[in-house]
Nucleic acid binder design. Structure first.
Lengths: 152, 152
DNA sequence: TGCAAATATATGTACATACATTTAATGTTG
DNA sequence: CAACATTAAATGTATGTACATATATTTGCA
């Protein structure tokens, strides 16, 4: 069988209702996608949160971002941007400097090396191995609409 | 506006295409659901992985499970079941005993206290605050079908 | 039989999340 | 303007993930 239904994936025969089934399917599928993505990214020495921070910094470039701005834009708001920036700074993919106009804040900028690395990863993200290319564009749009409704 | 589209949630104006948009929406929505669930469960002193392990053990009850069986059934196969069982054992929600017929393996069983806790959490999972009850049953089924196709 | 391979679990390490607390700088206001 | 509150970031702690390695037991087979 090509298509593995969620029942087969997690080896449990039945769900109580379609709500429970979709819920578990959603968590499972998101984890499945992230596992594939992080495996690919490991070859480049980046974790997923590090990649996401880098993308936000590229969006700001050449303006700096503060830790606060990173937290606002991150998919997971409660995580710890400070320590992820630590790792990126060690790899010289970002710079960190006290903000001159507000010395509580820190100006974080992506470096040239960071921009170059992101460019290589962009190609990966479009590849068959990571995206949702099993869906048609219409199905992808439909999926987005359903997910928006879940969070309503 | 009631319904927050994913563009608003992550404060980025546009996506490259519907694939990228659905991808980010999927990761974001799964994280959003898990954050709500774990916040509720914290009142009961359980984390999500601990809850998932307990549910598998209830499925086996009164038979024991081994660590291997837990790993097979967990949504995330590569995580560390041993240490999650450690935490559950400390809370006296499970017991751990060397398997008599194969002394490499460990028989893990859910306790009465564990079963009682799960029963209380079942009610929570059905509540408005955690499930996908913004969808109709038809939409939930449609969501599941799309997610199965994503993983195909 | 004895010894290497396989199996079951546990442990170590780097990284991340979730949340509380701390430190420093800046605002606010009586 | 001094005391207090607020803000920005960093740090501490418990938990979990991902992966490599270690330890003990069992299996297989020369």
């Amino acid at each position: 069988m090509q298509l593995m239904k969620i029942e087969d994936e997690i080896k449990q025969p039945a769900f109580k209702d379609d709500f429970q089934k979709a819920y578990i399917n959603l968590i499972f599928t998101a984890g499945w996608l992230q596992l594939r993505q992080s495996a690919k990214f490991k070859e480049y020495g980046l974790t997923l949160p590090q990649f996401n921070i880098l993308r936000i910094l590229r969006g700001q470039h050449p303006k700096p971002a503060t830790v606060n701005l990173l937290i606002e834009r991150m998919l997971d708001k409660t995580s710890n941007a400070s320590r992820i920036v630590d790792k990126l700074e060690t790899k010289q993919l970002v710079t960190r400097k006290v903000c001159p106009s507000n010395r509580r804040a820190v100006d974080i900028r992506i470096t040239e090396a960071g921009l170059e690395l992101l460019q290589r990863l962009d190609a990966l993200m479009d590849s068959q191995h990571i995206g949702l290319h099993n869906l048609t564009p219409q199905e992808a749009a439909q999926l987005s609409a359903l997910l928006d409704k879940v969070r309503d």
